[in-house]
Amino acid sequence: MADAGSSAPPVVEFHDVTVAYSGRPVLWNVDLTITEPCLFGIIGPNGAGKSTLLKSGLGLVPLVHGTARFWGRPLADVRRRVGYVPQRETVDWDFPVSVMDVVLMGTYGRLGWFRRPGSRERSLARECLDRVGLIDVADRQIGRLSGGQQQRVFLARALAQEADIYFLDEPMAGVDARSQEQIFGVLAGLRSEGRLVVVVHHDLRTAATWFDRVALIDMRLVATGPTAEVLTPDNLRRTYAGQVDLLQEIGQAVAARSRTT
């Protein structure tokens, strides 16, 4: 498998991706290739564009230029094979749905328009809930869960997508240690099933032990490769005390000029 890597297209390939919010670039020219399934961490300081990179891959933010491809094909062709766990804060947990309802949402992509989830989807959802240890609270309204449990609901929903690639946005943020271990266990299980798991993560200590490969990001790609090779003092200094000032100023100049003059 590894030897065939040169001919088979990479699982995920970001090619020269630049993303701007209202004309102002926040991520510059990222070239990132993940050739084979593994646990992949995207690491960097706050505001470095980690989540933006993930979202650009999923087509949630428009690219100024560059492309994101999966197995050499555009996202539209392989959408069902890509699972997504957004940040927990992005939804209203007072929403009137049960834990089961949310997990079933993972099956909607396969169901397509107007078809309702049936017994197959329900048993799949129960399996996924069992995997994240939440089968007991399946009928509870989602607001009545702890933060860690809510995060695991999102993970179960992604599992129900039965995808080959998983994108997770800060799954460990604001989550208790027990839930963290449980989530990591599930992610490691996915990897051993031969799936690619890409995780946006901000905690350097755990990153060093959890991930097979990482990318250091700070508005641009600083370094990428096997975890031990990338998390060097030099690379970390360049990521966390880097040349971001200059990038931000140039971003502002680009935004100002392309808007008015």
């Binding site: 979202k55 999923l58 087509g59 949630l60 959408r79 069902r80 890509v82 997504y84 957004p86 992005t90 939804v91 209203d92 929403f95 749905v97 309802d101 949310v102 949402m105 909607y108 992509g109 169901l111 328009w113 107007f114 078809r115 309702r116 989830p117 929903r157 997508q161 994108f167």
Partner: peptide, 16 residues
């Protein structure tokens, strides 16, 4: 089904 999905989590809906 579709409306509930979008109302609850529009980002996830778009990503899928």
């Amino acid at each position: 089904k579709e409306a509930t999905l979008v109302a609850f989590d529009a980002d996830f809906a778009a990503a899928t």
